[in-house]
Design a protein around this nucleic acid. Structure first.
Lengths: 221, 221, 221, 221
DNA sequence: CATGAATGAGGCTTCATTCAT
DNA sequence: AATGAATGAAGCCTCATTCAT
């Protein structure tokens, strides 16, 4: 396993870690599951294959996760939660409120950069979340809940703040969100999933993306 | 089955029809497959269930489609092709070239409206394409091929045309595409898959989306 | 397979047959299941073993019985029903009412002989019923239902009839039943399950059992 | 745990105790095993569940009982032995011989009452014995051995004694036993297992049962 | 003695696919 | 062309038992 991969794994385990200690085997299982499911999808991944890659007996998986689906949940739920975290992290929003960012662009840049770093460090996890969301209502529920309870209100506050500051046009927040989020997600997905090999200048790309969000593509003669 | 559903089915069969004639049973099979796979996903759908819903013996499916995967391909490949069609449809690009649309916004509106109608008429098909794309390399290949050979060049032409006309800023086409397509897809997905029940004013929404693409969200003081 | 066994099997299949036609393989499966479960018990019998003995693929079992438990039910439920049948069979009770049997002893003899023949022809089935009753609430439910709805009322009628005729003492029916049924069952179980090998003179044994039921063991000086 | 239950447990442990001292954990294990197996049966009871209910680690069970089956044996064998004990207990038979009981009915009453008390105090143990007897040849062996070596000869003696005294009719002992034992067992099973909730007048029921055994149900005109 | 994580054999069940009719 | 009974590989999961600590 390349050096890079093992560092990445460590970071991902950090993402998944919830309070309790994990035994080494449990860690191995999670790692194997992430690798294979991200590559082939949940339904194409046999528990026996996970066990094999993890160097563990198949039964061991079920000692730690009652069900194959529980194993998936142990990957997906913390990922969704952690991905949303920075959005509503007290400090982030607070910083906005305390005028840490004068211009909306500056805020956007900090925000996108931050989530980009997270995504880059957790590509397989996000791949799994995206791929499986459609098929598992429980996952959708987690997502919906987090979005409505945490993400949406936080974004709302930020937008109101910058509207008041005359930084953004007076458009309904829902509309702004419908432009902004797909654009950002589009960038992340293209950059990390569709064309990860391409030689990207990430900072430049992010700035460009933000410029587009701010100014559109029209020539403002 | 409600009147609306059966009309929608007819349209979808039109989307899937390729040269050869289909027997009535084959049509039934395709319809059943579309309904169930769109709802539960490919791997959660048993061929026996498709057969049952189609009112056909299990064996009959395999007389028409060598493999379950072939059946999926028969749904997915024409859908991808047809969805891309208008982009490179001679008449559409030609119309641009022959100055049918003076402003880029007008073109965009015509284009988005057209694809929106298509999507609205083929929701289950597009759902299947989106959901299964990640897991089936053959599908990805079809998509990639069509995008690179047909869609991208056509878009390129159009953009160059409107750049020359001073309608859009002089930004790399790739960048423009990276803003535009996710935004449009984002609208389609939100409108048709995530919140189909909501009471939408479609024309207004499309115009708004295009405004955002053109002008961004920044206040151009 | 000895001649006797194959005849017995036929009779048992008759006992289990409910309206629908069975395919030959289905018959084989039932037969194998009966043999093995009667010998080793439900929980010690693997479906793979049943399949093997039946000369059938394991999957074939589940085409005919959704569940291993369904297979058990297909054995147990008809057996309970059929075993109780003669008790409430119209003709039997009718015969009593129409004075076919002058003495209670004569009725008892006919009745016990009849059920003895049935039991003898269905030993493995009854073994299974007895053994599994304790562990499967659904089976208990079937039994309870049949006993309360059919058996008990029929017996009641008969007893009242013979009480009126001065053939039996004026003891509560419940009490009579508590003496009679265990005694008869005791005979059947001893004769067919516990000591089947012993050289029995069945008619003599039945007469003796009835004598005891009628007169007890006390010396009526 | 109700007062009554814990007293009952103590009595049952008394029934199971064989020479060696038991550690507190061992006692806990036995108690848990009894409760769960009596309720759900041997094959539906996981050792892990026993361990949990006993408040003990899974491994601990296997330190005391080499095998799950050994644990069952530790419950079943002493129960069979102790249930048969009073029959051949020197004092009981001796009392008969020394004319402690003038009439057979008196003996029967004392005997049935005695075993009823034992059974009442050990319901779960007897439930287990009855349920599992069919599936475990080793248990059947224990039972057969005790019955033939101890119970049967003792009963024989008693019957001969009362025959000589003109208390019971001159019928073969085997026949007498075949009437008597199922009737008594029938009473015990109905009273303690099938309808334990019912409001019974135990002494009256026992007397009635004995009357039936002595006199049958016929009207001795 | 006690623990409990780990094992791995084996059980039940599903399902795409075949083939004789 | 159509049928649907049959197949058998493969999947998920359970659980008695072991063993290092």
């Amino acid at each position: 396993m390349p050096e890079q991969d093992s560092r990445m794994m460590e970071q991902m385990m950090e993402t998944l870690k919830e309070e309790e200690k994990m035994t080494p085997k449990q860690v191995k299982i999670l790692q194997a599951a992430i690798e294979i499911i991200a590559e082939k999808g949940y339904y194409n991944t046999a528990t026996s294959e996970i066990a094999q890659r993890a160097g563990v007996a198949e039964g061991t998986i079920f000692r730690h996760y009652r069900t194959k689906k529980d194993l998936l949940a142990a990957i997906v739920k913390p990922t969704i939660t952690k991905f949303a975290v920075s959005v509503f992290a007290a400090q982030f929003v607070d910083q906005v409120m305390h005028e840490r960012y004068e211009r909306f662009e500056d805020f956007l840049f900090a925000f996108v950069s931050d989530r980009f770093e997270f995504a880059k460090a957790n590509v397989p996890l996000l791949k799994i979340v995206l791929q499986e969301m459609a098929f598992h209502p429980e996952i959708q529920a987690v997502y919906k809940n987090i979005f409505q309870e945490k993400v949406y209100p936080a974004i709302n506050n930020v937008l109101e703040h910058f509207k008041a500051a005359g930084e953004i046009r007076d458009i309904p927040n829902v509309t702004i969100i419908r432009l902004t989020i797909p654009t950002i997600l589009g960038f992340l997905i293209t950059r990390l999933l569709l064309q990860p090999q391409k030689d990207w200048d990430d900072e430049a790309e992010i700035r460009e993306t933000i410029q587009l969000i701010m100014n559109g593509i029209g020539s403002h003669s």
